[in-house]
Design a protein around this nucleic acid. Structure first.
Lengths: 344, 344
DNA sequence: TTGTATGCGTTATCAG
DNA sequence: CTGATAACGCATACAA
């Protein structure tokens, strides 16, 4: 019905525009790239013709000519992470705003695969910069990454690499606020539970706990704290029990998974949440909202972290900016697992 | 310490290789692309020199020359989905195996944004094919997508578009098996709960329920079923209550969220799971494992679905294969919410 | 089996 | 302000 051909013809190039507009190729290029030194008349004509022809630039040709790919790469680990979806959306969104495409590269576990990746596939990626997501083992190679000539940003690095810029969240402050919230509800025996402490953010959150106590002039009671140096992600059941034996009226968990374990243990003892003991987590993973009672927790702004990472990377690509980390603020999300204390 | 320059020199091109190996450019190209008509001697020499120089091909140049980008695009919706991480990992993995890169493009909600996307940014994407993930509103434009000249595959299309190949899971069979499992545990009054039925997979799962009943010679009891035509994602509380009032000894939920709602309602009545009533979900979302009791559910193989999508797309790109859908098999994951019946 | 010439679509350099 | 011309790195006819 319309006048368009249904057969998808060859895409028009700047050559076609040039011919149709009666100007030269470079002039078209200048117009399309917004260069100032073009007469208003020709600029107008060229734009008109370009629109009429349905011109879309060739990313590949541009990349070849400029030496820049106009894209950045996201290296994703093999394991699933609750915040990945949001983080990537933030990255993709911010990248698009800046005219950058997003290339995703899956990382494979295992030494062999990592080495192979760094030496073989990494150099071939047509990207101007890299975002490395919680690389775990990859961290050993992060130096090589940086040396590959392209700027690198690490998101939520566990144990920051010197010289590599990273994006984190306000781990310390977030927990401090959480403690303050509990104090405001009348809690005085506030416990802290963490699993493995091998990461920078775990230590930061513990510091935030101490800050919170200090701020409220509460004493540090070792029996209310478990840092399970060598435990897996969650604290050992006996450590958890030990803390509960000390009868806290609130527990701050270093991350949500721990909070869920706490809630189960508390329920098992027949104690009520939040009447007898309040529970606060960290992350605001999807589970936090779904669990009963729903979990008050420190929201980790994954989408914003992704955006920040892209901003840093884009700056580094354009102005060769050096390492300048970013710390995206958390936000306390109050749900059902906290509330005024009821127990004597 | 080593002999390498630390200053990242200009990347070597096939020109450099040609010069160093004393052959011509095209010869190098042929060797690198595995063309047969090259003498073993030169082939060897070229490969040696290429390795020595640390040559990596330029994806951009190759794309420009061949007219193929060697990449495929994943269109991701703005909302979070529990299976996205796994799905994308499957896509990325399979794409890499086939030497394809993965471009991720975020979709923005809203009519204006969608139209803008299809007409402006979509044509510029340097990809040879597109994977469209549960596009919701985008479905209106899926025709335009296909007409853009590049093959398109839809993952988990709700209400399949004619002519557009899609990847789904065995919704019908999965539920049938779930029912069989319940029957095997002695359940006889098996209910079925769904939220909105506007999607193809919801209807398929209901059919599976009917299949299961039929297979076990169980009667279809309308009072045990709620299809809430116009409800939101979860069924209305009154519908749920109505089904429970009919005293089922098991409930199959069309997806996990519904199962969680069922579990809460069952607990609220003081009934035990699974002793009094068993519950089975569909999806195997992360919550299913975390909830107490953990949820028996039909596992939806997101990673495999991603792999299948890439296979279909790659075939379509290479051989221009027409629409040939894929159905990836589900797997029943038995956890605590089912078990032998105890109630009289 | 190998080399020459040319083209892919764009930007950059340099005259005019 | 504009237009020739070259260059980006690679692949492909075609000729040798």
């Amino acid at each position: 019905m319309s006048t368009e051909d249904s057969a998808p013809r060859k895409r028009p190039t700047i050559n076609d525009i040039a011919a149709a507009a009666g100007v030269s190729k470079p002039t078209v290029s200048r117009v399309l790239n917004g260069h100032p030194d073009v007469s208003a008349a020709t600029r107008h004509r060229v734009q008109e013709v370009a629109a009429e022809l349905g011109y879309v630039p060739s990313a590949d040709a541009r990349a070849l000519s400029t030496g820049r790919h106009g894209a950045l790469g996201l290296l994703m680990p093999a394991f699933s992470w609750w915040g990945f979806n949001e983080l990537q959306y933030g990255i993709a969104h911010e990248a698009e705003k800046r005219g950058l495409r997003l290339l995703v590269q899956a990382l494979h576990p295992g030494d062999e695969a990592e080495r192979e990746f760094v030496t073989r596939t990494l150099p071939t990626l047509p990207v101007d910069g890299l975002i490395l997501l919680m690389p775990e083992g990859m961290l050993r190679y992060v130096g090589d990454l940086a040396r590959s000539g392209r700027p690198v940003v690490v998101v939520d690095d566990r144990g920051n690499r010197p010289g590599i810029p990273y994006v984190e969240t306000t781990n310390r402050d977030g927990v401090r606020e959480a403690v303050a919230h509990l104090v405001g509800e009348g809690r005085r025996r506030i416990g802290f539970l963490a699993g493995q402490m091998g990461s920078a953010y775990a230590r930061a959150r513990f510091e935030g706990y101490l800050d919170g106590l200090r701020e409220a002039d509460l004493p540090y009671l070792p029996e209310l704290v478990s840092l399970s140096e060598d435990a897996p992600v969650e604290p050992l059941p006996e450590d958890l029990d030990a803390v509960l034996d000390a009868e806290p009226d609130a527990v701050v968990a270093a991350w949500d998974e721990i909070a869920f374990a706490v809630m189960n243990a508390v329920h098992a003892r027949g104690w009520r949440i939040p009447e007898d003991v309040a529970v606060i987590g960290f992350d605001d993973s999807p589970l936090a909202r779904a669990v009963r009672p729903s979990l008050t927790t420190v929201h980790q702004p994954c989408r914003e972290m992704g955006e920040a990472a892209v901003r840093m990377l884009a700056d580094a690509i354009e102005h060769g900016t050096g390492p300048a980390n970013a710390s995206v603020p958390t936000r306390l999300v109050i749900r059902e697992s906290t509330g005024p204390i009821t127990t004597a």
